[in-house]
Nucleic acid binder design. Structure first.
Lengths: 135, 135
DNA sequence: TCGCGGTTGACAATGATTCTCATTCTCAGT
DNA sequence: ACTGAGAATGAGAATCATTGTCAACCGCGA
């Protein structure tokens, strides 16, 4: 049971590395399309379909986080593998990772109260960050 | 400042009523497409574009809740106008509305700590309900 | 009754995501 | 190092939710 492989125990192809590197190089969320453009701009020539496949694969294995923009477009971010939430600025897109033991406990309690098990949850906070408030 | 009109102070056209009625008739989330089919099945003949417009309008006015399915499709539900969250069964789709003062406070505190203002947040809990656990 | 702004419906357009399939590459075993 | 089997890739077509366009329509006040 390999638990902490460099790339999550997945076959390390150049294309997948490129996708992961692209995500690692920025600290906010990017859509699959944006990652593709980013790679194209570097001459990587990685196909769009491959970007989608790689992102889905990594998301499956917990190496990247997936969220949805308000318009439904999926956005991805390389992140720590521990459970956490995001605080996102609606103007500039800046993202802060936050942990919330209080929330974890609350959700568990509520779910148990209603007989739910095998839980997962999503919490996103959207707001206007300090820098964008005057604008 | 009309605060509790029957239809949120919006012009009550037959089409909009039909959309709202369709949503009121079920107690879980439905996509715009599903609402449209539902209406078509009753012979209402309401256009798809109109369904989208009505849903967007009601969502804007807080008469319906909007979420995203995992595949990104938007789903809507008629619900109370107070802020609340949802506990959803991943197997049967059953939905429970829950309130979480603790969560509200926590998000405000975290956001303030990082200088964010004008907040909104989304929290969804997905799990397996008691009825679906043995299956 | 007439005119007007808001609403509707049919259909085209958009855009993200997925599928297809022939080609290419990786990995394990020899 | 060589080879076969199966996974991965790229290009483009296909899918599908959602939005835009625009002419026809409706109810309401003048």
């Amino acid at each position: 049971m390999t638990s902490t492989e460099p790339s999550g125990g997945l076959r390390p192809t150049p294309q997948r590395q490129a996708v992961l590197d692209a995500l690692s190089g920025v600290d906010d969320f990017r859509s699959a399309q944006e990652v593709h453009e980013l790679l194209a701009g570097e001459g990587s020539g990685v196909g769009l379909a491959t970007v989608y496949r790689a992102l889905a694969l990594y998301a499956d294995h917990g190496l990247v986080d997936v969220l949805r923009r308000e318009d439904g477009e999926a956005i991805y971010r390389r992140c720590s593998e521990t459970h956490h939430h995001h605080l996102v600025c609606r103007t500039c897109g800046a993202t802060v990772e936050v942990e919330g033991p209080a929330v974890e406990k609350w959700t568990s309690a509520i779910a148990a109260e209603h007989g739910f098990s095998d839980l997962s949850h999503t919490l996103e906070i959207v707001g206007t960050c300090a820098d964008c408030q005057g604008r």
